[in-house]
Amino acid sequence: MSTATHTSPALSASAAAFGMGRTVRLGLSRIGYETKIYFRQTDTLFFTFLFPVIMLTIFSVAFQGMGNVGANPDGTGGISQAAAYLPGMIAAGILLSGVQNLGVDIAAERSDGTLKRLGGTPLPVLSYFFGKMGQVFATSILQIALLLLVAVVAFGVSLPTDPAKWMTFAWVYLLGIATSAILGIAISRLPRTGKSATAVIIPPVLILQFISGVYLQFSLLPNWLQTVASIFPLKWIAQGMRSVFLPETFASVEPGGSWNLGAVAIALLIWLVAGLVICRVTFRWIRKDS
C-alpha cells in the first residue's frame, strides 16, 4: 500500500510567510548597505544628490537682477527667482535619484560582475530591488529636505502653509519617485558596458530637464517641444510640484490654463506600469551557471 505525502495549507502558508519575512529582512539590510555606498561615491554625490541644490543656487543668484517672476507692470508682486526654480529642481532631483542613479548603478553592477556574484548567493531578487528602491527613497527625501532648507534659509522662499498643498506634494512625490526608480531599473539595460553607462544615460536625462520646465519656463517653449516633453514623466512631475509651490495665479500659464493634477496622476501611473513591464521582460538575475 503506497502512501502520499501532502503538505497542509497551514504549513504552506507558514513557509510562505517565513520566506517573505526573510526577503523583507534582507531587503532592509540592503537599504543600509546601498545608502552607505551611495554617499561614498563622490561623482554620484555631485551629479545626483547635490546637483539640483547647486543649480538652484546658480539660477537664483544669476537671475535675481531680473526681478520677480510674474511681477505686475509696475514691478510689484510676483515671486523670487529662487521660488520659481524650486519646484523644477525638486522634480529634477526625483528624476536624477531614480532614473540616472539606478540606471548607471545597475548597469555598472551588471558589467563588473556584481550581479553575477549576487546571483550565486541566497539573496532573493526582491531583496536586491528592495534595497535599491529603499536607497532611492531615503536619499531623495534627504535631497528634497536640503533643497527646501537652502531655499528658505539662503533665499527667503516661503513654503506652503495649506495642508492640502502638502498632501499633493506627498502623492506627486511618491508616484514620481516610484516611477523614476522603476524606469532607472529598466533603462539600466541600455548601456553595453558599465563604462558607457554615464554617456548613454546622462545626456537624455539632461535634455529632458531643459524641455520639461526645470531650467526654462515651460510656457515659453514652442508648442511642438511642449508636446514632446509631455510624453515623458519629468514634465508631469514638475507640473505637479509647481502646483504645490507656486501661487494659484501661475496655473493660468500652464497648458490648458490649470494644474491638471488628474493628468499628472494618469501620466505617471502609465509610466510606472510601463516601467514594471519593461523590467519584468528585460531584467535578468545572472546566476553562476548562466
Rank of each mutant, 00 (worst) to 15 (best):
Tyr85Gly: 03
Ile231Ser: 02
Asp105Pro: 03
Ile202His: 01
Thr76Val: 09
Leu220Tyr: 10
Ala17Cys: 00
Gln226Val: 05
Gly98Gln: 04
Gly19Thr: 13
Pro204Asp: 07
Arg284Gln: 11
Gly19Asp: 13
Leu246Tyr: 11
Leu142Ile: 10
Gly88Tyr: 02
Ala274Arg: 02
Ser12His: 04
Val99Glu: 09
Gly184Ile: 03
Pro222Gln: 07
Ile211Ala: 00
Leu86Lys: 06
Asp289Phe: 04
Ser258Ala: 11
Ser290Leu: 14
Ala10Lys: 10
Arg40Cys: 06
Leu208Asp: 02
Leu216Pro: 05
Val99Ala: 05
Leu86Ser: 06
Tyr85Trp: 12
Phe169Glu: 10
Leu45Asn: 06
Thr7Met: 11
Arg22Gln: 15
Ser243Phe: 04
Val24Phe: 09
Val61Leu: 15
Val281Asp: 01
Leu123Ile: 08
Gly176Arg: 02
Ile182Asn: 00
Gln143Val: 14
Phe169Ile: 14
Ala17Trp: 00
Leu225Ser: 00
Leu276Phe: 02
Gly32Cys: 10
Ala145Lys: 09
Ala92Thr: 04
Glu254Ile: 04
Arg189Ala: 03
Ser219Arg: 10
Met20Ser: 12
Ser243Asn: 10
Phe155Asp: 04
Pro203His: 01
Val104Gln: 07
Val104Tyr: 04
Val157Ser: 05
Leu28Ile: 14
Val125His: 07
Ala15Leu: 15
Ala71Cys: 06
Ile141Pro: 02
Ile90His: 02
Ala263Val: 10
Lys165Asp: 13
Gln100Lys: 04
Val172Gln: 03
Leu268Arg: 03
Val273Ser: 01
Ile90Glu: 03
Pro203Thr: 06
Arg25Thr: 12
Thr48His: 02
Ala251Met: 05
Ala82His: 04
Thr3Asp: 12
Pro52Met: 08
Ala267Phe: 01
Leu206Val: 03
Gly156Trp: 07
Asp43Trp: 12
Ser243Ile: 01
Gly184Ala: 04
Ile54Tyr: 01
Pro87Thr: 11
Arg192Glu: 11
Tyr33Gly: 08
Leu147Cys: 12
Leu225Asn: 00
Phe155Lys: 04
Ala108Met: 15
Ala265Leu: 14
Lys288Tyr: 08
Val172His: 03
Asp43Thr: 15
Val125Arg: 14
Gly67Ala: 12
Ser290Arg: 12
Ser8Met: 07
Thr168Tyr: 00
Met89His: 06
Ser80Asp: 09
Ser252Asn: 10
Lys165His: 12
Tyr38Met: 14
Gly194Ala: 01
Ile106Ser: 10
